[in-house]
Amino acid sequence: MSSNDVEMAEPRSPTTNETDSETTDSDEQLELAAQVEVLTEENRRLREEYVRARQSRYQATALGLAAVGIIAALGGVLFPDARDVLVALGATGLFGAVLTYYLTPSQFVAADVGERVYTAGATNVAAIADELGLRDDRVYVPGKTVPARLYVPQNTAYSVPDDEAGPIVVDDDSRGLLLEATGAELFDEFEQAVTGAIATEPAALASQLTDGLVEQFELAQRADADIDAADGRATISITGSAFGDIDRIDHPIPSFLAVGFAAGLDQPVTLEVTPGDDRADWLVTCRWNPETAPEDE
């Protein structure tokens, strides 16, 4: 067999264009990896700065209370006639400073993390309710062992079940779901922090709940209540939700409000959430039976 009959294939060397393309792809990957690393580091730095900023607020408050306490105590020495009052004020200021300093949170959870956790649970509950053919009605039922539970009925006409009947209610006249409400745990925390007792009149109760929503939990930037006790209605306008859209099932903001009204008025409360207007992002409407609710004085 001659060498002319068989052609030996020689390896094809890469062209200049192919080499340049591979080099470009490699450079782009390295650049993207570097950008990801920079963004990750920047995100970590921003989170640390946020934590330090929040901690500095508490520490500044502690220093302010300590300064008031020291000045009041010195005033008690300089002004004998007002010594009792000034010494008491000084002791209160110093005690508050110590508490504020040592109770400063060392870790904060970003709102977007909390929202993602809530979203997963809400999506699952909404899917189950849809699969069971339940209505969009949301009823918060006061409980014996918890402030209130969320009842989602199946039928248009329904009887509110006993608060211990859930989670799946099979009675013909109250068939549906009876679930632990997101706002129940929040209300427990709120009840421990509120000054005095929880109000039982709609207007006073609404004032307490909106203050807790904005000042204590910081779930919204603003919450304003419009109360019609005679009609058994409270509409709260919400601006600046920290957890995104609040028209999802058992969202922390409307859930906390509905649980609060159900527990404070000691009767079932129906909940409706609608988009707001140019004055607010959302409108949360809670309704109850005005004939059995305490009247505002």
Results as ranks from 00 to 15, higher is better:
D173S: 05
S174W: 03
S174I: 04
R175Q: 13
R175F: 06
A181D: 08
A181Q: 05
A181L: 08
G183M: 05
G183C: 05
G183H: 07
L186Y: 11
F187I: 10
D188F: 12
E189F: 15
E189S: 15
E189Q: 15
F190N: 12
Q192D: 15
Q192S: 15
Q192A: 15
A193F: 14
T195N: 12
G196F: 10
I198D: 04
T200A: 12
P202S: 11
P202D: 10
A203D: 13
A203C: 06
L205W: 04
A206S: 13
A206G: 07
T210R: 04
D211S: 07
D211G: 03
G212T: 09
L213E: 06
V214E: 12
V214I: 09
V214Q: 04
E215G: 06
F217T: 06
E218D: 15
L219K: 07
R222T: 12
R222H: 08
A223Q: 02
A223V: 07
D224T: 05
D224C: 00
A225C: 03
A225L: 02
A225H: 01
D226C: 00
D228S: 03
D228I: 00
A229S: 13
A230Q: 08
A230G: 10
D231F: 02
D231W: 01
R233H: 07
A234W: 01
T235M: 07
I236Q: 01
S237M: 10
S237V: 07
S237E: 15
G240F: 14
G240Y: 13
S241V: 11
S241A: 15
F243V: 11
G244M: 02
G244I: 03
G244K: 05
D245L: 12
D245G: 08
I246F: 10
R248Q: 15
R248M: 12
I249N: 04
P252V: 06
P252H: 11
I253C: 08
I253E: 10
I253M: 10
P254A: 03
P254C: 09
S255Q: 11
F256L: 15
F256W: 11
F256D: 09
L257T: 08
L257I: 14
G260D: 03
F261S: 03
F261M: 12
A262W: 08
L265A: 10
D266V: 13
D266P: 08
Q267D: 09
Q267M: 10
P268H: 06
V269N: 00
L271R: 00
V273M: 11
P275M: 05
G276D: 02
D278A: 14
R279I: 08
A280W: 02
A280N: 12
D281V: 02
W282N: 02
L283G: 04
L283A: 13
